[in-house]
Nucleic acid binder design. Structure first.
Lengths: 351, 351
DNA sequence: CCTTCGGTTTAGATCGATCTAAGTTAGCCC
DNA sequence: GGGCTAACTTAGATCGATCTAAACCGAAGG
């Protein structure tokens, strides 16, 4: 709630108009590229505006027109490469039709999220795409709902909030992972490793994974399937701890590639060559192919996911939106960490 | 340039006022928590506002007060974890004094950057922090300069633009890298690997690195020091290519950790055990410690860098800013990739 | 009883744009 | 010359708030 420049008086439309003996309305028409003004006037106005250093005040225009071109993308973690890439898709679709997408970072704190959403409502933004903070509840979205601000929930569901939702196909991810581990690698005992218990994707994925894996006759390792922060570091420490206690399951679906990185490091640390463990990540970050061993991962095209999200928001705003509104299907990208490809020269297999 | 809700008529301050037989001014005072209104009126107003579903219009207020709480953080790549973390620091410092920081993504395209900066000026933002797009020139900032919008340049310098600048200490980074490779590891032939030729940090780092390394009596490998996209993939391909042609230098300072990842993968691929190569990254991303081999890296605390940047912007806006306005000094974080620590069990040394 | 005073409240102008409906031209045709 | 049209241009209200300066009001003071 600060700002504003000191110094010389700002120049307004009326200054340009007076300076030319025209009315504000005419200058306004020029600024908006209306075909109603003659070429001569248009040029004169543009030249004079330039000369006076006039800067169009979009904020004032927005107030009058009751319109806004700002769309807020509210997310808990800009550092997560997956969501960062999703933002590209959102921006692509919305930018195309003239919206201005800006990202606000909640750092996964509900208080901050609340404040940001409130600010967006107060500024009369055109729309909001949000990945809710982990501990968010329906209450946190009550204000949003009431304000009528077009909103799309991304990636994380919230109980009791019936806003449109766009996310990855968790059931398919679980099934893909299960099938790959059991059918391709013949795993006999598996786990779902990592992920915050509050994260809605975890629930869906783990459930379908566990069902599919059980149907395939594999055992479930409950100890390895406890929830956990979705960071590489937390995964590393937990895995190291569990490895002390005994051999790992022979197949693990990790909550994210980040988690897989931590697990891969722990496995490298001390697993006897005799107990190989097939590791699968989720998200397929760019780096996963660079990793040693390269990380097998279940990918959902993040940019396309973002585009879908953008289109759903457009629809929500009552605008035409061409293209699919169904999130892309996940795909298995098999590499070395599950044992599909040999690891590169000097290092051994994944586990 | 769209948006606006359909449905019932919006409720304004005057509606709340009329409904209570008060004036707009009084309601306005309540909304701004002025001590001028009596407790009784305040409560009545708040209750009535709640009842009518009134939502304060910050945009209208901003127009009248000529103030704004929006600060734009304009960056070329939200997916880069280093800059993402810098944004945390900026947000921390500015959020503390009531500013609302939002991030806009230029995807390193000057056209888009121009458009975004223009939009920020047009919306009368309170200030801007920007990491210029790679190909940006002074022209791209002419409008910004003229508008008087308080601006800070982050990480990348632009010739001919005298806006305040905050960035890492490139000379120190070059020196640290040189010293580590020559004095600690006794490297005899080194290179600076990767980085776009247009990126201003590359120039500063490489220059000081080369000077220090030459003074220490080590040779310079020009072929390995050619510029290159700062991605892991580009680094991998280039390194693989160069390795075909002959042995690598025995010490390499990489433009970033991402570049180091690519190089590490290439080295794993085919280096004969006989030709070890010490690899150093820059930025020390969180993942670098997880890598195999763990990546040695020269770190500048990104969050603190962001804080410094926020403080410089505050000063630029004529506001008090407590705390340092000098970027933190870089530090060497030695791990396995340069040979400082043994790599973890199964794999061999870095190269 | 009138004045003064501090605590509240308010009318009217204002921020910088857009919109509506009406006004001004010039040109053309009969 | 008058009427009509097409092409521009404009005055005044408006968006939803804040600001200034003045008004109101009950109590205390003279």
């Amino acid at each position: 709630m600060q700002g504003g420049r000191p110094g010389v008086r700002r120049v307004r439309m009326i200054d340009v108009a007076n300076s030319l003996g025209l009315s504000r309305a005419t200058v306004s028409l020029v600024m908006r590229n209306s075909p109603l003004v003659s070429e001569a006037t248009r040029n004169a106005v543009l030249a004079e505006a330039e000369r006076l250093g006039y800067i169009y005040n979009q904020a004032a225009a927005n107030l009058r027109t009751q319109r806004n071109d700002l769309v807020g993308l509210v997310m808990p973690d800009v550092m997560n490469p997956f969501v960062a890439e999703v933002s590209l898709g959102v921006q692509e679709v919305l930018g195309e039709v003239g919206f201005f997408v800006m990202i606000a970072n909640t750092v996964d704190r509900v208080g901050l999220q609340r404040q940001i959403l409130g600010s967006l409502v107060g500024h009369r933004a055109a729309g909001v795409v949000t990945i809710p903070a982990l501990t968010a509840t329906a209450d946190d979205f009550a204000g949003l709902r009431q304000s009528g601000l077009p909103t799309v929930l991304l990636l994380r569901r919230i109980d009791g909030v019936d806003l449109p939702f766009v996310g990855t196909d968790e059931a398919a991810i679980g099934r893909l992972g299960a099938e790959h581990l059991t059918a391709v690698h013949g795993c006999r005992r598996v786990a779902y490793f990592g992920g915050d218990p509050l994260a809605s994707p975890r629930v869906g994925r783990m459930e379908s994974f566990r069902r599919a894996v059980t149907e395939a006759g594999a055992g479930w390792d409950a100890a390895w399937s406890q929830p956990l922060d979705a960071t590489a570091d937390a995964a590393y420490r937990r895995a190291a701890e569990l490895l002390e206690a005994g051999p790992p399951p022979d197949g693990v679906l990790c909550h994210s590639d980040n988690v897989a990185y931590g697990l891969a490091k722990a496995l490298r640390l001390g697993t006897p060559e005799a107990a190989p463990c097939a590791v699968l990540g989720i998200d397929d970050l760019h780096q996963s192919a660079m990793w040693n061993p390269s990380i097998s991962s279940i990918a959902t095209d993040p940019v396309e996911l973002g585009r879908v999200c953008g289109r759903v928001l457009l629809a929500e705003m009552g605008m035409p939106a061409e293209g699919s509104r169904v999130p892309p299907a996940p795909e298995m990208h098999a590499r070395a960490s599950c044992g599909c490809h040999r690891a590169t020269r000097p290092a051994g297999r994944a586990g």
